[in-house]
Design a protein around this nucleic acid. Structure first.
Lengths: 345, 345
DNA sequence: TTGTAGGCGTTATCAC
DNA sequence: GTGATAACGCCTACAA
C-alpha cells in the first residue's frame, strides 16, 4: 500500500504542478488514481477477462475524468497489425480522382485495410515531401505522381509503391497502366467509320510514354489517314486550355472535321468553343474526349469519349500492393478502356 | 551467445521452411545477420550518429535482402506523435464530398496532420463498425453520419468526434452545421421577388432538425406565401427521385410556378423532367437546388441553387477537431450559404 | 565507432 | 478477481 500511496503523490506532482508539460495520460496513471493495477484498467477498458463490475465502474470513471485515450501505437505494437496504405493524388476535386479513390478504398476495405490520403494540391514539387511523410505511416503507397522516378524512389526508400499514371521503369516500382493504345485505336476507328479524314488533336504535356499523341499518330498512320503536324496543338491541361486549343486549331486548320482532345476537361473547353463558334457537333466538327468523366453526359450534345474504368484502376492498384506486400514483383497490369459514344462524335 | 545462435536458426526456419508463418523482420534480425548490434542498424537506417560508411553499407545491404521495414507502431511509440484524423463519408463519388474532403485534407495538412478516409459505401448500417475500426487508428473523427447519436457514441467511446451534417445533441459530439435557414430564406426571397406565389418543394427524408421542409414552410409563411401541404412531395434522395418528384408534383399541383428541391441531385432529376415535359425554365417553372454542386453549371439552363462552401465546411470541421483535441468543448460552428443565381430560377 | 541498458504504452500469460 | 512480469520493435542515452 505504501507503494501505491507514494505513486499517487508522484502523480499529483506531474499533474498539478506542471500541466503544461502535459505528458500523455497512460494506463498506469489511471491505475494509480483508481488504486488498481494497470492490468485491471486494461481489463476494464477492453471488457476482457473477469473483473468486478464495481471495480470496472470505478476505473471507467477515472478514465473519463482523466480523459484517458489508449495509444494507438502501443496497441498496434501488441495487436495484429492493421495494414494501411497511403494514396497520393494531385487533388481530390479533379473529377478524375473520386472514382479512382473509391476503387482504392473499397478494394482496401475488402481486405480490412485502411487508406491514408494525401494530396499535392496540384503541386508536383510537394511529392517528395509527402511521400516521405506518408512513408512513415503506411505499409505501402499508391500514387498518381509526376516527379522523375529516381526522385520518387529516393523519397520512399524501399516502401512498396504502385504508380498508376505511367510505366514503371524503376525496379522498385510497380505499375497499373491504362490501355491508352486500345482506347485511341477505338476512337480512331470510330472517326474513320464516320467518314472523317482530316483529324486533329488538342494535346497536353504529359510524362506518359508513349504519349497519347504518339499513339494517335501511329493509329492514324496505320489507317492511312495521316495527321498533319500542324493539326496538333498543345495546350495547358485544363478547360481553359481546351477552349484556346480548339480556337487555335480552327485558325490553323479550318479543314479539320474531327478532334481528339487530351482528356475530358480539355474536351469540355473545346466543346464550349465549338458552341461559341456556332459549330454543330458532330456535324461541323466531331469531338472525342478521354477519361469518361460523367459530367460529359450533361453537355449538349453529350461528349463522346474514351472511357477509363477508374474505379477498376484503383482496385487493380490495391491488388498490386497486395502482391508487393506478399514479396512478389508483379508485372504491370493494364486497365481496359471503352469507347463511350454519346453524341459529340 | 547460445541464445543468439538459436535465434538465427529460428530465423532461417521462418524464412526458408515456413514463409507463411512469417514473423516480422525486426531490427534485431538485421543486426544478427549483419553481425552488428541492433543499435548500429538503427543508426545506419536513420543516418543518425557516427557510423563507419562500410558498416553502414553492409547493414543496408542486409536490410534490402531481408526486406526489412521498420514498424511504424514501434516508431510512433518512441517518436513525437503524428496526429491523424479519421474521416467517414457515405461515398467519395457523390459530388458533394470531394470538396468537403479537400477542405479536410488541406486543413489537416496545414497542421501537419494526416487523414484516414473510410466510406460506408452508402450503407449507414456500416457506420458503427467503421467508427469502431477507425477509432483505433486515429486521434479524432470527422463524420457525415446518419445513425442515431447514441449508436454513434457507443461506437466511438470517447474519441473526439465532429459531425458535419446535423446538430450535436450528445455531449460527446461537436458539430459543424450548414446555415440552411439563411440559404432557404435567400432562395425564398429570390422567388418572391420574381413574382412567384405558388411554390412547391421536392423533399427527401433526412435526419436534420429542423428539416429543410420546416425551414421552407416557416420562411414562406413569414413572407405571406404559405405553401400548400400537397405542394410538397417526398422522394428518395437521388436524381431518379427528383425526376419522379417533379412529375408527381405537376400532377397534383399543376399551378405551382416555382420548385425548391432538396438538393442539386434531386434538382437535376427535376430539371430533366421539366425538359421532358417541355416546360421552360425559369419561364414555365422556376427551379432551385441546394448544395451548389458544380455540375449544375453545365445544365441548360444552368441550375440556380443555394451554394454551400463545402471546402470551408471541411476546414471548419478540422478546426473543431483542433479545439476538441486541446480539451475544449467548442460550440457548434455554422457554415454560411450563398444563393447562386444561374438561370433556372 | 560501436554496444548495452532502459523505457515508450499496451496486452497476454501466469501466478496469487 | 486481481496483480506481477514479460513481451511487442524501436530509439535515446550512456558506457566502452
Amino acid at each position: 500500500m505504501v507503494a501505491g500511496y507514494d505513486a499517487v503523490t508522484v502523480e499529483d506532482d506531474s499533474r498539478g504542478v506542471s500541466p503544461e508539460t502535459s505528458r500523455r495520460v497512460t494506463l498506469r496513471d489511471v491505475a494509480r488514481i483508481a488504486g488498481v493495477s494497470h492490468q485491471t484498467v486494461s481489463r476494464a477498458i477492453n471488457g476482457k477477462g473477469e473483473i468486478d463490475p464495481e471495480t470496472r465502474r470505478r476505473v471507467l470513471e477515472v478514465v473519463q475524468q482523466l480523459r484517458y485515450r489508449p495509444s494507438r501505437h502501443a496497441r498496434g505494437l501488441v495487436r495484429p497489425d492493421t495494414t494501411t496504405i497511403g494514396l497520393i493524388v494531385a487533388d481530390v476535386v479533379n473529377p478524375y480522382f473520386p472514382e479512382l479513390i473509391a476503387g482504392v478504398i473499397s478494394a482496401a476495405e475488402q481486405r480490412g485495410w485502411k487508406v491514408l490520403i494525401s494530396t499535392t494540391q496540384d503541386d508536383p514539387g510537394r511529392e517528395p515531401e509527402l511521400l516521405r511523410s506518408l512513408a512513415g505511416q503506411v505499409d505501402a503507397l499508391i500514387g498518381y505522381l509526376f516527379q522523375p522516378e529516381d526522385v520518387i524512389a529516393g523519397a520512399v526508400e524501399g516502401l512498396p509503391l504502385v504508380v498508376i499514371n505511367r510505366p514503371a521503369r524503376h525496379p522498385a516500382f510497380s505499375a497499373v497502366e491504362v490501355d491508352v493504345r486500345a482506347g485511341v485505336e477505338a476512337a480512331m476507328e470510330h472517326l474513320i467509320a464516320r467518314g472523317h479524314r482530316r483529324i486533329g488533336m488538342i494535346d497536353c504535356p504529359s510524362a506518359a510514354d508513349p504519349s497519347r499523341r504518339d499513339v494517335l499518330l501511329a493509329a492514324a498512320a496505320a489507317h492511312g489517314v495521316p495527321i498533319a503536324a500542324d493539326a496538333i496543338v498543345e495546350v495547358e491541361q485544363s478547360q481553359a486550355g481546351g477552349e484556346a486549343g480548339l480556337a487555335r486549331l480552327r485558325e490553323v486548320r479550318p479543314d479539320v472535321t474531327a478532334v481528339m482532345a487530351f482528356n475530358d476537361m480539355v474536351a469540355m473547353g473545346a466543346h464550349r468553343t465549338a458552341r461559341r463558334l456556332g459549330l454543330s457537333m458532330p456535324g461541323d466538327i466531331a469531338l472525342i474526349g478521354f477519361d469518361g468523366l460523367s459530367f460529359g453526359e450533361l453537355l449538349e450534345p453529350p461528349l463522346t469519349t474514351v472511357g477509363i474504368d477508374k474505379r477498376g484502376l484503383g482496385e487493380l492498384a490495391v491488388a498490386q500492393v497486395e502482391r508487393l506486400l506478399a514479396g512478389d514483383t508483379p508485372p504491370t497490369v493494364v486497365a481496359p478502356t471503352r469507347l463511350l459514344i454519346r453524341g459529340s462524335a
